[in-house]
Write a protein that binds this DNA or RNA. Structure first.
Length: 701
DNA sequence: CAAAGCCGTTTTTTT
DNA sequence: AACGGCTTTG
């Protein structure tokens, strides 16, 4: 093993020299790889000297501050160093709140900060996502809004079934307003701060007026089930702050400093919460890049970051425009591309790294050939030792795209991980078990109740369930309540009545089992009591399938076990919250696989904040990127797609390969595809209306 | 009450 | 093409 002492000022030429002089006879392949690896490490870790702009962002500690940070400019590093610096200057760690976009980012930051500055485990800065922060507040305070503190967090499929129920109840035909449309509409409103009562006033079309009525019913349903949906987590906290100023005061005074990463993705509610938390001390530092705002569909508004200086008078503004991530050739493409967007702060990323391979653009016959060739090409890179699997990522726009690539990768025996997919939680067995647990935690949860009340079959038929639900809805109470009412039970036959009683007893057993904590043994015992093995047996056609299904059950058990290991106080409630908010604890398998060296497959959205030496961006076709849904509106929607493409390009450190297919199959039919406009824009084959006039920073009002 | 079969929809992106 | 909800049948 050769040790190369890496310190400031070590260049790759120097490393090359050292390698050649070393007593080992490196073949070219190995030497080449070592140099690449070392250069990367150099750029990643050995860039500790902050540049002037970064230094200012880290050292100006009080008052509002806006950090406009381009891709790869060391954004996360600045936040981390800033937190460490605050602590170093004597701020008590637990008085600092940092908000990140994903749970993973929060964990990473937590770790980085503790690396920079030693800390008492009891006195740490709070680093979390908006959603976890809000859950914490709600669990303590939600009674002020008439909810039970044992509320469950509904997932999207529960949301959909609630929408279906509501529409049926108010007799809206599918042709008028489909459940899915209602779900989107409600989420759209909630993300923009529209409460049920206000919906009627903002509704413009007939559809939306019906939607407004359904929205009110939907919200009543949630309260009846003791449930909140994702959007409620934020909305209810905002409501709580308005309704109970003392709670707002209490929450706001917990912190003296507030830092927010990815500020360009803030929506109206988050913005309002941020204001509430920071208006007293005004020590708010937001970091973001308007060019990377890609969550408009969720109500994120670039306007918030553009307006920051107006909202917080006296705010200092710092721009980080040096890019340490990508080679110059890649950055050039990114800069040319993003210049096509009209409404943005005008900034150009300046490469800290020079030269680099020219990005390739490749065209294929169809999506099969695209996958074949892409995988072949990366297989060569791996076999030559130029890169390891973990250095390579394949980025795509929609979730149906990776299928073909998966097949190819398996064929070539190349390890891979699909990041950000929740497919594990889509499996029936997993959903079932989680529903069982949710019922134990909160028996009012009707969607979960419907899912498991009769699986395995225990004599409670659909008809019975229907009657129970109707009775409950009429009375405005939870299904669980009417199941215990002797009056209603008397309407059922004796065997049905007994079946219901047995089920109630089952839930009681669960409550007892999980009273203190949830762990491997508790869950195994519970599954036994539920006779869930019977259900697996019943739904499987053969031995093989049965084993496959049972293995997902075991995976859930393992997840619980690892949760139990990690948590100081592993309650059922915490477990369910974790699962609802992010699969982070569950994703540890993925992390392990990644450590084990695998090619990453992920959507452009999921790739934000990550970087890879080699990036394959696939499916660059009109209709996919930009997606055809956004082409209907042109303008801002296409600009967002362009930002998405920009995010993709700027993930690449050393090599970028852009590809497209000329035909593509969808639902069994073959469609002709045209190359994405972004391809032409990137390579300067498209006129840029914005580049003629000298642009200044966008008007901020 | 349970199982089998039919019909219609779905695919943009996610905490 | 695949899945879930609904209806029919046993």
């Amino acid at each position: 093993m050769v040790k190369v002492l890496i310190h400031h000022g070590v260049t790759s030429t120097r490393i090359c020299y050292l390698l050649q002089r070393s007593p080992y006879s490196w073949d070219t392949k190995t030497a080449c790889y070592l140099i690449k690896k070392t250069t990367l490490i150099l750029h990643k870790t050995m860039n500790p000297a902050l540049n002037d702009a970064q230094k200012r962002a880290v050292e100006t500690l009080s008052g509002p501050m806006l950090v406009l940070a381009g891709a790869g400019s060391g954004k996360t590093r600045v936040v981390t160093f800033r937190i460490a610096n605050l602590i170093r200057q004597g701020i008590q760690p637990s008085r600092i709140l940092a908000v990140t976009f994903t749970k993973k980012a929060a964990q990473e930051m937590q770790y980085r900060v503790s690396e920079l500055i030693p800390m008492d485990p009891e006195d740490r800065p709070e680093i979390s996502t908006f959603h976890s922060l809000c859950v914490r507040i709600l669990r303590r305070q939600i009674e002020g809004l008439g909810y039970s503190p044992r509320f469950t967090i509904m997932d999207t499929s529960d949301q959909a079934s609630t929408c279906r129920k509501v529409l049926r109840e108010i007799r809206v035909a599918d042709s008028t307003l489909r459940p899915r449309d209602l779900q989107h509409l409600i989420s759209h409103w909630k993300n923009r701060g529209v409460r049920p009562a206000q919906a009627a006033t903002v509704a413009a079309t007939d559809k939306e007026h019906i939607g407004a009525i359904a929205y009110r019913r939907y919200q009543e349903e949630l309260i009846r089930c003791g449930a909140v949906d994702f959007d409620d987590l934020l909305l209810l906290v905002d409501d709580l702050f308005v309704k109970c100023p003392e709670i707002k005061q209490q929450e706001a005074s917990r912190f003296d400093h507030l830092l927010i990463d990815e500020y360009q993705d803030t929506n109206a509610i988050q913005y309002s919460i941020v204001r509430a938390l920071a208006e007293q001390h005004r020590n708010i530092c937001v970091v973001g890049d308007d060019d990377q705002s890609i969550y408009g569909f969720r109500g994120s508004e670039v306007q918030h970051i553009l307006n920051f200086p107006k909202d917080w008078p006296g705010a200092s503004e710092i721009r980080l425009e040096a890019n340490y991530r990508s080679v110059a050739t890649i950055l050039e493409l990114a800069n040319t591309l993003i210049a096509f967007n009209k409404s943005r702060y005008d900034k150009i990323l300046k490469p800290a790294r020079t030269g680099g391979k020219r990005p390739r653009i490749e065209q294929f016959k169809d999506e099969d050939q695209e996958a074949e060739e892409v995988v072949k090409s990366l297989a060569i890179q791996i076999s030559r030792g130029e890169w390891n699997p973990r250095d390579i990522a394949i980025l795509f726009r929609t979730n149906e795209q990776p299928r073909v690539f998966e097949q190819e990768l398996r064929k070539h025996d190349i390890p891979y991980v699909i990041l950000g997919s929740k497919s594990f939680f889509d499996r029936k067995e997993v959903k079932d078990i989680l529903s069982y647990l949710r019922i134990v935690q909160n028996p009012h949860d009707e969607p979960s109740m419907r899912r498991i009340i009769n699986s395995p079959p225990r004599g409670i038929s659909n008809a019975t369930v229907g009657k129970l639900i109707d009775a409950a809805t009429d009375r405005g109470v939870a299904m669980w309540e009417v199941m215990q009412s002797p009056e209603i039970l008397s309407e059922f036959s004796v065997p049905v009545r007994n079946a219901i009683r047995n089920f109630i007893a089952l839930v009681a057993t669960g409550k007892q089992l999980f009273a203190d904590m949830i762990g491997r043994q508790e869950l195994q015992k519970f599954l036994q009591v539920c006779r869930y093995d019977k259900e697996v047996e019943r739904t499987s056609n053969d031995q093989e399938e049965q084993q496959l299904r049972w293995s997902s059950v075991e995976e859930v058990v393992n997840t619980v076990a690892s949760f139990n290991d990690k948590q100081k106080n592993p309650t059922l409630e915490k477990f369910l919250d974790e699962i609802a908010l992010a699969a982070s604890d569950i994703d540890e398998d993925k992390d392990k696989q990644l450590d084990q060296d695998a090619v990453a497959l992920l959507t452009l959205h999921a790739s934000k904040g990550l970087e890879y030496p080699v990036v394959y961006m696939v499916g660059l076709e009109e209709g996919i990127l930009p997606h055809k849904r956004s082409l209907q509106f042109e303008g801002e929607a296409v600009d967002e797609e362009r930002r998405l493409a920009y995010v993709g390009v700027t993930r690449a450190q050393d090599e970028l390969i852009l590809s497209m297919a000329l035909t593509r199959r969808k639902w069994g039919r073959v469609y002709e595809q045209i190359p994405s406009r972004f391809l032409f824009e990137m390579i300067g084959q498209s006129d840029n209306p914005n580049s003629y006039k000298k642009k200044s920073a966008v008007e901020t009002r």
